[in-house]
Design a protein around this nucleic acid. Structure first.
Length: 419
RNA sequence: GUGGUCGUAGCUCAGUUGGUUAGAGCAUCAGGUUGUGAUCCUGAGGGUCGGGGGUUCGAAUCCCCUCGAUCACCCCA
């Protein structure tokens, strides 16, 4: 096909109906679940001072090579948000709300990477964050909130994977152990992983390269390096999930890509997704991040779910269809006057979904448009109806057409749509 | 950033070993008597075959470059 002059940039796309209805409904479900769990919505700006995001970690790809950074006219360095957590922490520090601060959000985030299935440069997330409490039961609540959301969409093939990364203080010894271990087996490690090792040894555990698997399998485990506090918290989260009947898998190699995570980390994987990008959501605790933003040393825990991937998962499981926003009534008018327009607005005022033929085309053309709109009723006004003070109602199925008084039009049409 | 695959009408695709005005289905529009859709019939519009260059008497078909899409690596939602 000959390409148009302009088209969407790589990794971006137009969301068109009926997907738009579906996205909106999905966010609606999440908003409802979040509110049930005591979270209120926050809408941070889409771009921030670049420092807000670079605080996420010097070793994270999200910051070092995927950030959409730019300067404003005054030379101020800023960037499109690659995720929400940083913005939420910044907002917390800026406004100092009461603790715990529980907020949810929905909106686009931006990462400049090569697009592929389930991975876009502009992608949609919903998520929730709670700042100001160490309570591991809060971790559990967050996880269950996400799980309930998936459940309400109708998704079944979702696996919850759980791990802990320990406290900041536990980290150095563990990292050292990893460096030693992998360092001694350097020749058994893939080239890529060797590079990763020098940057962030944790991330080597996350390698998907088959060659690395045997080595990773017997690598040191964080659980052996946990402080008692972190260990107890991890047990408490597991106990909570068990008490609530939420299934999970432990995976000591789950490290997640952002450097700020501490203690609990989790990921939701869709097994029905035939794409490499099968993580539909993830999150964890970030106990030092608020302080890094220049705020008080308040802990935080939260998650983000990828809306685009979740929708893909819904597709492959055949669940969560778009809600019906179809036109109910289609107004056909051949008078050339304003009667059709008036009727359409009257019916709209009465709360019905009404569309109308434009451009004064032939009745046949208007009826075709009516049929295409998938409305179930056509209201027809021509010269005869106007003269007689009536309107013709034509059901767009097999039922017979009938005539109603113009003055009773709205009530007669409403009768046609019970409920 | 690296690699694989792909790029013909709005959509899904044909297009034989390079050979005359590039096709189909769906969709769109208009007709099939005077005001009636979804079915059926007839017809019409719509493509410089992603773009540029080259080989050739001749290229949608072969070669090179480029752009784009897609999938994967990496990484993550």
């Amino acid at each position: 096909m000959a390409r148009p002059t302009f088209q969407t940039l790589p990794g971006t796309r137009d969301l068109l109906p009926p997907d738009t209805d579906r996205f909106r409904a999905l966010v609606g479900v999440f908003a409802d679940e979040a509110a049930r769990s005591g979270f209120s919505q926050i809408v941070p700006p889409i771009f921030e001072e670049i420092g807000v995001f670079t605080r996420l970690g010097e070793a994270t790809d999200v910051v070092t090579k995927e950030l959409y950074a730019f300067e404003d006219m005054g030379g101020r360095k800023q960037a499109l948000r690659p995720e929400f957590t940083a913005s939420v922490c910044r907002a917390f520090v800026q406004h100092r709300p009461l603790l715990p601060w529980k907020s949810w959000y929905a909106g686009p985030a931006f990462r400049q990477e090569r697009p592929q299935k389930g991975r876009y440069r502009q992608f949609e997330q919903v998520g929730a964050e709670a700042i100001g409490s160490h309570d591991p039961d809060l971790d559990t609540e967050l996880i269950v909130l996400a799980a309930r959301f998936y459940q309400r969409l109708g998704l079944k093939d979702i696996t919850l994977v759980l791990n802990t990364l320990g406290d900041k203080a536990d980290r150095p010894a563990f990292l050292e152990a990893l460096r030693d271990y992998f360092g001694q087996n350097l020749d058994a490690l893939s080239q890529k992983s060797r590079e990763t090792l020098s940057l962030n040894p944790l991330r080597v555990l996350d390698s998907k390269r088959p060659d690395d698997q045997p080595l990773i399998e017997s690598a040191p485990r964080i659980t052996d390096y946990l402080s008692s506090g972190a260990g107890l918290a991890f047990e408490r989260v597991q106990a909570g999930l068990e008490a609530l009947g939420v299934a999970y898998e432990l995976n000591p190699r789950l490290v997640r890509g952002l450097d700020y995570y501490t203690r609990t980390t989790f990921e939701f994987l869709s097994s029905s997704l035939d794409a490499a990008q099968n993580a539909v959501g993830g999150g964890g605790r970030y106990d030092g991040l608020v302080a890094d933003m220049g705020g008080p040393d308040e802990p935080g825990v939260g998650f983000a779910l990828g809306v685009d991937r979740t929708v893909l998962a819904c597709d492959s499981e055949g669940v969560f269809a778009a809600p019906d926003t179809r036109t109910q009534i289609f107004v056909v008018s051949t008078t050339g006057g304003l009667e059709g327009l008036k009727i359409a607005e009257e019916l709209r005022s009465a709360g019905l979904r009404v569309d109308r033929a434009v451009d004064h085309r032939s009745m046949k053309a208007q009826m075709k448009a009516a049929n295409r709109s998938r409305a179930s009723l056509a209201v027809i006004v021509g010269p005869d109806e106007v003269a007689a003070g009536t309107a013709s109602l034509r059901p767009l199925d097999d039922r017979p057409q009938f005539v109603v008084e113009r003055t009773e039009l709205v009530s007669r049409v409403k009768e046609f749509f019970p409920s």
